[in-house]
Design a protein around this nucleic acid. Structure first.
Lengths: 165, 165
DNA sequence: TATTGTTATGTTATACTGTATCAAAATGAA
DNA sequence: TTCATTTTGATACAGTATAACATAACAATA
């Protein structure tokens, strides 16, 4: 299955750029590759550090921000506003849809899980939001919740003798 | 209907505080009142300015942050992570539920609309997130979308001759 | 090949958002 | 009063993001 995912990613990215008349420059490509390697949400500054550690030529946070903005507009990167972090959004992570993805974000440890919503769900949500004068085109949903690990930790610290029922 | 909403808000807040053994101090009450007056999302620093403009005794952003944290824990304030802003979450805005509210947030103009989700929706979402190891207790959903005003503006600027069909 | 326009990056500064830390004040209980 | 706890004051600083202007790279055309 995982045949040369990076190359796949880059070629898709190149196609998208060609469509819009923009360029997939070396830096942009490198940012994509670093994000792909990390495969976890990182802040722009963290990304800068990783970039400078991995790639030969250095980059500044300012450039990283600009490139992230570009890649987000190209649907190649998700910006997780809730935690001020960025994560790759590559065709390698599933078929290329423009469904609004649902991001589960743990309030406590900030781990993230991306979920594809079913068509029913999408439909219902779209209608609901339209009814309130909003359009979900190209949008994304962030659900600030709690992951099971953090839930169990909290439980323990709050009442250490509690059974797991 | 709107009989003395501020008093109602404050008395409910007082009750909540009593339950947890904490205090609804003058500053906390003022912050609630200012947020209630504004009734729109504001940043902590904007809130500080408004506070200092409206209330006699001054307050610092640090205190505002602490009070916001306190009020959020008491379910009296929502923190909208997507836009780093805070909005009142008062019982005057509907029956007191612990359903996760859905916030529609315009990516463009950052206007916000709070929506109560139906029980079906909540149920489906809860199951879905549980299946992925997350719990939605006390959580909130932020949907980064586009409001109709900004949609029409964008349309116009992109293709000014387009009909409204 | 020069020229020009557009896109992308370099560079510096600065604004905005949020937390750490320690001291002081206010409150409540022993 | 004394003590512990909660709340606030005050300062500093960390982290996130953008503004502004200069330069470089690229493409198209004369």
């Amino acid at each position: 299955m995982k045949f040369n995912e990076t190359k796949n990613l880059i070629s898709v990215a190149r196609l998208i750029c060609e469509e819009t008349g923009s360029r997939l420059t070396e830096k942009r490509q490198h940012v994509l590759e670093v994000l792909f390697k990390l495969n976890t949400p990182v802040s722009a500054y963290e990304l800068t550090e990783h970039y400078n550690a991995i790639i030969g030529s250095p980059i500044t946070p300012m450039s990283v921000y600009r490139i992230l903005e570009f890649l987000e507009a190209a649907n190649l990167v998700h910006r997780l506003h809730s935690i001020n972090k960025y994560i790759i959004c590559a065709p390698t992570f599933g078929p290329w849809k423009h469904h609004p993805p649902l991001f589960l974000i743990c309030k406590s440890c900030q781990c993230v899980k991306k979920i594809e919503l079913g068509n029913d769900m999408i439909e219902t949500l779209s209608l609901l939001t339209q009814k309130h004068g909003f359009l979900t085109t190209g949008s994304q949903i962030e659900l600030n919740s709690t992951c099971e690990i953090c839930v169990s930790v909290t439980k323990k610290s709050h009442s250490s003798g509690e059974a797991n029922g």
